[in-house]
Amino acid sequence: MSTNNTVAEETTAIGPVEGESLYDADFPAPLIEAPRKRTAKTPKSTRGNFEMAAWLFMRLSGVVLVVLVIGHLIIQLVLDGGVSKIGFAFVAGRWASPFWQVWDLLMLWLAMLHGGNGLRTVINDYAERATTRLWLKGLLYTATVFTILLGSLVIFTFDPNIR
């Protein structure tokens, strides 16, 4: 910084900003923090990342379901005479294998949670009254939990010699 700084300020129209810097290594400019920067004083968010996790789940489960469901459709509706061959004996034959038990169990859970979350989004979008949303989602969650539990129970307790 030059020694005649104060003289220049008084004798020219150029202010200190346009003129020479007010700051140097011995007298650094004050640090101005970026707006909305998170610091130790920032309160913790109370919302969490549920919606982001739900968004990611829809994509991950979607990819897996494409394989599981299209495989299921090919087995049930295309191969060996299509729907005509389906019956108790056919189900018993497939669930004799742990591979198809796991396939069906995974498909059940992923499809119900994927569809349940999809309907949750639809309800949130179109049901405008808070009480309507509450009741519709209560019904949805009840039906979803019931269906997942019933389906799992059926797969785990299936008895080919029931009769």
Partner: peptide, 28 residues
């Protein structure tokens, strides 16, 4: 959206009809 909602309703019915294997082979 429309296909998703339709598939979900079918899935619900489909789990119920499959659950009949625990009732009897004839019911299923």
């Amino acid at each position: 959206r429309v296909t998703g909602v339709l598939i979900f309703f079918f899935l619900f019915v489909h789990v119920l009809d499959t659950a009949l294997v625990r009732v009897s082979p004839e019911a299923y």
